[in-house]
């Protein structure tokens, strides 16, 4: 673990919970019994959320961000893509040295997980996980295959769009975020009950990665760009007042 820099200690911006998906979203059936019914207790961040774990380069292996090769060393089958972008905070600053982890199905939509019984086969050379640390400007990059769509038991004919799960750390535990990125132009996005747990169309758009021909490598792979925005931090100059003053 390494220390974060000064300024990574200030209170967090308040979360806009109308922008995020609500907890209780009946179109996504599992949420109906897993959503709290009582209101959240409003707190605002404290030192417990403003601090958080930090990760060092020493724990990242050379192939950790290469899902095409990191399982067996032999290449996985599928559409080769670079998935890249930046981790920013709400003030627009890049967030350096933070851990980004991804996981996904293979090109046929099959996950390497004992609970996935979909009939599409496993790819013997595809594990489905990757991780990396952001660079000084918050940038990150993975090499992977584009995952396939797959069916799931929700309504009788629900299919997840092609997607990659992302787990991102900030410098504070209160910035912790898991999300999913989707691919430009996928007609399943608009039909997906998990996507539609998000109420605002602009928020859904924030999860769709555009094709990025500038980062594609001719005769090798295509590229998609996906930026992640974490909660910002407030300047703490006037934060030490007692409540009510």
């Amino acid at each position: 673990m390494t220390a974060n820099s000064e300024g990574d200690r200030d209170p967090l911006f308040f979360r806009d919970r109308d922008w995020h998906p609500a907890a209780y979203t009946p179109g996504y059936k599992t949420s109906m019994t897993r959503a709290p019914f009582r209101p959240l207790v409003a707190l605002g961040s404290t030192l417990s959320e403003e601090t958080g774990p930090a990760f060092g380069q020493s724990m990242i292996g050379a192939l950790d961000n290469n899902l095409i090769l990191n399982f067996t060393g032999q290449p996985a089958i599928g559409e080769r893509i670079i998935l890249h972008g930046r981790v920013l905070d709400e003030t627009g600053r890049g967030v350096p040295n933070v851990l980004v982890e991804i996981w996904q199905a293979n090109a046929g939509g099959r996950y390497r997980h004992k609970k996935d019984g979909y009939l599409a086969p496993l790819d013997p050379n595809f594990g489905g996980c990757g991780r990396t640390l952001t660079g000084p400007d918050g940038s990150y990059e993975f090499l992977t295959v584009r995952p396939g769509a797959y069916p799931w038991p929700n309504r009788v004919n629900d299919w997840r769009p092609m997607h990659v799960h992302l787990s991102v750390f900030g410098s504070g535990f209160g910035q912790r975020l898991i999300t999913q990125m989707y691919f430009e132009g996928d007609p399943l996005i608009a039909r997906c009950p998990i996507v539609r747990t998000i109420g605002q169309e602009k928020a859904i758009e924030a999860l769709v990665a555009p094709l990025d021909m500038n980062r594609a490598i001719p005769m090798d792979c295509l590229a998609y760009k996906f930026d992640v925005v974490l909660r910002g931090r407030r300047q703490s100059l006037f934060e030490n007042r007692r409540e009510g003053m």
Binding site: P21, H165, T179, I194, A203
Partner: peptide
């Protein structure tokens, strides 16, 4: 900027 919206971690 707006925070990236959350999505479920899913079963996998």
């Amino acid at each position: 900027l707006k925070e990236t919206p959350s999505q479920t971690a899913g079963p996998f």
